[in-house]
């Protein structure tokens, strides 16, 4: 009776008409130790199906929250790099101001400027002294002016 039923189920099974319940019945039947000899060849098949159900995925899953690259941070980084760049270049100029021929200390600069100005005025005064002789020349020309007077009078004399 049972065997008859199993044979029918097998036929249905091969035609793909069995329900899951009926298939479970078949699997059940073929997991027994003793099976009807003419159905022996089905045994490994159902055993294989049952055995394969047990296989498990054992590998770990590296589930890290995937970090997506945020482009906002790129701009922040760029600004930071620029700031650092500016800071260092300005400090480099500060440190090397002697190389550029200028003075770092304002007092030092003032001293030097006043020194230079004093020197200039010194020389300027010398020049101005030399120019002073021109006044004498003026005097000379002024006396020469009297000659004109003499000429005027002589002209008058000769006209008459």
């Amino acid at each position: 009776m049972v065997l008859d039923n199993i044979e029918k189920l097998l036929e249905k099974y091969e035609n793909g008409e069995t329900t899951l319940k009926e298939e479970a019945q078949l699997k059940n039947y073929f997991s027994q130790k003793i099976v009807a000899p003419h159905l022996e060849m089905y045994k490994p098949m159902f055993q294989y199906f049952l055995g394969n159900q047990q296989e498990q995925f054992t590998k770990d899953l590296p589930l890290k929250p995937k970090k997506r690259f945020n482009y906002k941070w790129l701009s922040v980084a760029a600004v930071a790099v620029l700031m650092i760049g500016f800071y260092f270049t300005t400090s480099i100029i500060d440190n090397n101001c002697n190389d550029l021929g200028t003075y770092c200390e304002p007092e030092e600069a003032l001293e030097e400027v006043s020194k230079q100005l004093a020197m200039i005025s010194n020389h300027f005064n010398k020049g101005a002294q030399a120019v002073g002789y021109l006044n004498e020349v003026d005097k000379g020309t002024a006396t020469l002016g009297y000659l004109n007077e003499i000429e005027n009078t002589t002209k008058i004399i000769f006209k008459k």
Binding site: Q47, Y48, G51, T58
Partner: peptide
Amino acid sequence: EKNTPLQKQVELNDSVSWVGKII
């Protein structure tokens, strides 16, 4: 061979492993 003992036991059975090959 890091198979579970059960699978080993199953595969020992030659005719069962045949089914795997057929599939």
